[in-house]
Amino acid sequence: MKLVKPFTLGVVAMTALLYACGDGGGDSARKETTSSIPQNEPKKEASFEDQHGDNPDYVQGLALIKDSDCPSCHMAERKIVGPSYAEVASKYENTEENVDLLASRVIKGSVGEWGDVPMPSHPGLSEEDAQQMVKYVLLLRR
C-alpha cells in the first residue's frame, strides 16, 4: 500500500474545505444576495435638509444664519452656549406672532428665556432678515 505524503494530504484537505465552504472554484461570478445592513435596524430620521431643502424659508434662513455669528452659540440639534435651534422650535409654534417675538429678541437681545446666559443684541440685523432666520429655526421642530 502506498502512503500519501503529508503535503499532498494537506492540499487535498484544503481543496475539500474550500469546496465545502462554497468557494469550490466553480462559479466565481456568483453574487452575494444578503445585505450587510441588519434588517431590524431602526430607520434614521430624515435630515432637516431632506425634510425642508426645497422650502424657501429654510434655504434663505439657513444662508443668513451661516453668514452671521449665530453658529458661535447655536447648533441645529445640539446645545452649546445657547439652545439648539431644534429646542427653540420645540418651544415655539411656527406662528406669525412667534416669528415677530423671536425676531425682536434676536435684534434686541434677551436674557432669562433659556437660563442666565444672555443672548447679545444684533442691532445691525434688519427685521426682515431676523424674521427669515427665525422662520428657518421654527422649521426644525421634531
Rank of each mutant, 00 (worst) to 15 (best):
G82M: 05
P83T: 09
Y58W: 14
G124V: 01
E128N: 07
C70D: 03
P123W: 11
P118D: 01
E49D: 05
S126M: 11
L18K: 04
G109T: 13
G25R: 02
A29T: 12
K91R: 09
T34F: 14
R105A: 10
A89N: 11
D69T: 08
P120Q: 02
L102T: 11
Y136C: 01
D116A: 03
E97W: 15
M119C: 02
V106Q: 07
R30E: 08
V81N: 01
S68R: 11
I37Q: 13
L17P: 04
I80H: 01
L64R: 12
P123L: 11
Y92D: 15
D69R: 01
T34R: 14
L125T: 15
R30D: 00
D54K: 14
T33H: 15
S121W: 01
E87I: 05
W114H: 06
A130L: 12
G124F: 00
D100G: 06
A86M: 12
L125Q: 09
A76Y: 03
L125A: 01
G82S: 00
E77N: 07
L102W: 12
G25C: 05
Q131V: 04
D129C: 10
D23I: 10
D67N: 08
N40E: 15
K44F: 03
E45T: 04
N55F: 05
P42M: 03
P83I: 07
G82H: 00
E45A: 08
A89W: 14
K66P: 00
L64P: 03
G112F: 15
K108S: 15
A76P: 04
K91P: 04
M75D: 12
K79G: 03
E77M: 09
F48S: 09
Q39P: 00
N55V: 06
V106I: 09
R78Y: 00
G112W: 14
R105F: 13
K43H: 02
E96R: 15
M133H: 03
R105S: 14
P38D: 14
S110V: 08
E87A: 05
M14P: 00
K79F: 07
P38R: 04
V106A: 12
L18C: 12
M14D: 09
L101P: 03
V81Q: 08
G82P: 00
S36E: 03
N40Y: 14
Q51T: 10
S36A: 04
P83L: 01
K43R: 11
W114Y: 06
V99N: 01
K91T: 06
I65W: 00
G25K: 03
T15Q: 15
S68Q: 10
E127Q: 13
L101C: 02
N40M: 10
V117C: 07
V137P: 00
V88A: 09
F48D: 04
E127G: 13
S84A: 04
D67M: 06
Y136H: 01
N94G: 09
E87M: 05
L125K: 11
P56C: 06
V81G: 05
A63I: 05
C21V: 15
L18E: 10
P123V: 12
F48T: 03
A103I: 10
H74F: 02
P38K: 10
A46K: 11
R78M: 02
T15K: 05
T33D: 08
L101Q: 07
H74R: 07
S35T: 15
T95Q: 14
V99S: 08
P118R: 08
S47L: 02
P71Y: 10
Q51L: 07
V137H: 00
G112S: 10
H122W: 01
Y58P: 13
